[in-house]
Design a protein around this nucleic acid. Sequence first.
RNA 1: AGGGCUAUAGCUCAGUUGGUUAGAGCGCUACACUGAUAAUGUAGAGGUCUCCAGUUCAAAUCUGGAUAGCCCUACCA
Length: 1133
Amino acid sequence: MYREFKHLNLPAIDAEILQFWEDEKIFDRSVEQRDPANSFVFYEGPPSANGKPGIHHVMARTVKDIFCRYQTLKGHRVERKGGWDTHGLPIELQVEKELGITKEDIGKKITVEEYNAACRATVMRYKDLWDDITRRMGYWVDLDNPYITFENDYIESCWWLLKRLYDKKTASGESFLYKGFTIQPFSPAAGTGLSSHELNMPGTYKEVTDFSVVAMFRVKRDDQAGFLFDNTDEDVRILAWTTTPWTLPSNVALTVGPNIGYAKVKTLNPYTGAPVSVVLAQDRLSAYFNTEDENKPFDEFKVGDKKLPYQVVKTNIKGSQLTGVRFEQLLPTPAASTPELEARAFRVITGDFVTTEDGTGVVHTAPYFGADDFRACKAAGVPYIGLPNPKAPDMPFPLVDRTGRFVDEVPHFGGRFVKEEYYTEGERKAPDFKPTDLLIALHLKESGKAFKIEKYKHPYPHCWRTDKPVLYYPLDSWFIRASAAKERMAELNKTINWKPASTGTGRFGQWLENLQDWNLSRSRYWGVPLPIWRTEDGEEEKCIGSVEELQKEMEKANAALGLSQQVPADLHRPYMDEIVLVSPSGKPMRRELDLIDVWFDSGAMPYAQWHYPFENQEKWKRNFPADFIAEGVDQTRGWFYTLHAIGVMCFDSVAFKNVVSNGLVLDKNANKMSKRLGNVVDPFETIDTYGADATRWYMISNAAPWENLKFDAQGIVESRNKFFGTLFNTYNFFALYANLDGFKMDEFNVLPYDRRTELDRWIISKLYSLVAEVREAFDDYEPTRACRAIEDFVDEHLSNWYVRLSRRRFWKGEMGEDKLAAYQTLFECLMVVGQLAAPVAPFFADWLYRNLTAPVKNTAKAKNTPLRHDSVHLSDLVQPDPSKVDEALEKRMDYAQRICSLALSIRKKERLRVRLPLQKLLLPVLDASFQAEVEAVKALILAEINVKELEYITDASGLLKKSAKANFKTLGAKLGKDMKDMANLIAAFDNEQINALEKTGSLELTVNDNAYTLTPDDLLVSTEDLPGWKTASDGALTVALDVHLTDELLAEGTARDLVNRIQNIRKEKDFNVTDRVVITLEKHPAVLPAVALFQDYIKGETLATDLVLTDKFKGDKVELNDEVQLGIEVSLN
RNA sequence: AGGGCUAUAGCUCAGUUGGUUAGAGCGCUACACUGAUAAUGUAGAGGUCUCCAGUUCAAAUCUGGAUAGCCCUACCA
């Protein structure tokens, strides 16, 4: 027996199937039964279990699950090792919040050991919730043996990779892992560097008003600058704007855009009235000069005047021409002066970041206090300015110390805080208090070096902890020289199949093009310690690549330094910090205190998850690179990048071949989900209510995964009702009648397709077209296309056409070949649809498969046939089979569907109910093949629309009036401008002209004196309404209906109405579909002709043994039509 | 600020290499159909294809620009 159900209950199906999967270990078996040599490699991007799973995780994991299940169905072995991301700042911040401490308290109020223990205890906090959602949503991943990034084995693999980078050298001999300087956000008030994460916290960027200055840099006259001077004593100055005057003492260069045009302008110093020539970008002239003042006499100007006379003396000076021009230092600090600085600094350099949107088109460049500045100086070989650093002469100490004050050696401003916010409230309220920026501006004004001083409002980052402004400040960091591999990364990136492609070429590709070195250092506590030990003078260092190597080095150190160290049981801080190694020259070496960026952890997972290369070398070889990964698009520069970067730099290989980057899950109004807005969707609740499959199906079918999903539970309801509801009903229908007829699928007695009906062969053809389409879509990582195709098939074709038109075959008569064909056909459709849907709807698909196969499971197992599997997920995906696809058949069935639809629309318009038979349908035919095609599906059409006969109207009948429309596609190219006129000409064609063209195959026409030859393809011919008939048309297809009624037709219509009412009564009374009944009808004139002519028909349809007419009817009456109320009684025989 | 994605009916989305009535589902209205129905059919209402300009005989589609939303990156002086 096939199981039958009252209603669709998806959550109940989830529960049943989940239990079954667990009892029978279906996931394990689905992996184990496949050949390791035929693997499909998937990498799981590790989630962090210190947060609760959200609905977006369901989305991301559905995408992962779909392709893993699909590849499994295709016969691949798809191992899915789960993983947990356990390090990183968010975890530390959470712990600090819960303990009520700040970073500064670590090592003081709490030991590093205790702190890290707290982190370790936190990271798996919500593991249970994660395990639960994983299970309930049907995501198959191996969480029994996950990789965990804090485990020693994992850390050791990371070290191994780092060492590999340390040993790897560029062509010029530079290591891929090096220590360097960068300009990083730094909070002097908190005394700490800030991560970009901290800078991205809400509220860090605030609108502030700063004193901005346009400073005047005096050009030194030499060969290079000669062209800027008209005479020897001319005072030429370059204008540069800054919103941070405190950086001016650290200025070493001016940066211009190489392709920007600059102008030299003769004018006066607005504050002193002294004649001066200034250089600035042409495009910026209007910002500083008013054209009304151009060429006005200079001697009329008085200091304080608003109108500044000027004269443009030179234009179109390219930035590149200015390169190398030297200028006098603006605010010299004698203590910082060196011969090196005098020789190579204070000159104009170029940078592509320069714009002319504001300022002067010249950027004041202070390398220690701006990342762009730093890079520009580095590239141009301009030295940095600061107090002498004996250990590193090219890295002098900045002129601002780590508390945010100018060092004492800076004239006029030594000891002052550079930002007024660093002073106490009291100090700032003092009557004579002036911010340092203002003091600098005034100083410049007095010394004739300021061109313009004004307040400027702009957003500026603030420290989230102290609320004080952040400085950009030079800090030591360890870097991975990613920039040296960027060409190779870009090259290999082109071999990756990105979904969507634009993420690969756009967001990711452009990121690679502008790749900077990877700043690996984090001055934190809970993470992978950087395995580098250095002597105190930095002269000697050692990078450790394994625990064994560490052990050996420690033994060496123990011997040399008389210690008794042992490799700690935990490779985290603080234990690693305590280890002292010995350098080749015998000096002690201590670990660089940095941790590495957690993104390195996750990018290392292809290797570290297997503890490669210390274990599993073979396994790793088989599992690298991944065939497929998927994650949110926000990971493009996160996980996707780190995987790629490590893969390319360490193994000269991509790390993944196909990648799906899914979009965000927003609420239904396209707002981001946040606790604050209270619009967060609880995934557990959603799955409980609607079932996992409906949720998954909705998410995937609604829009492509890489689009943002506007999550609306109403959409899940729609998926549930429309797709699952329909499929469920179709199955239930099958089960109901199969049980009545005792039908069981017999794989050894399958009726050949050529002995099945047209309709059977049609749905089989549609089914195998679907198989091809769905496989193609999944192969192409287009799950949405697959879902929509399946949905369309189930709804439009299977349920609404095949089942609807076949119903009679299932309930009428005894089991015979036709009935068998119907059962076998429907069975095959359900079976295959279940398989195709299985990747997306794993629960329902398995439920369907198991219901369909249960009655034959034992036989199938015994005989080893395709239905033997315990689960659809253990089965082999049906192969595409072109021999089962009959395009001509699909085409003529399409005609049938359209003709029916048209005929029904006429009935609707004429208010002729479908139960009322009509005599004739007229069909104008335009060509013989059309007629032949329709003839093959004629019976279907007539039955569906309840019409007795079909008559074709040809040209010969004289009834047919054709009309033609131009085929723009074929004609457009050859006609060009004459197209419109030709279209009008063709629209006016009559039958003869159309027929003439069709007969001879060509027609000469002249339009606007140009001669053209038309072919039949250039016309789109259709028929016009037949006068005197009720017609409807759809494109080239027109049908006409004979609406003339006879007594007999009316009687038959009434008979069918009676059948319908009687059937309804049977249903109401809950009779079994096989029960025999006796019908008593009220003797009413309206039904007499029907009973007289169609008594046998009525009895046959309703399984009535007797039909009695009576004058004295008692009991309830039934509405037969608008006018007639009729007494009908149906009782069991 | 830069880069990326998106913009089509009230809502969710299709829309082939540009081709002439811009579609589907949901929702709404009305009428049908049903011996599977949490279904279905037919009809109606509902569109400045975000805006502007360009290319073209022809633009939802191609190009440029603008606007809005979102994502990523970012001290632009």
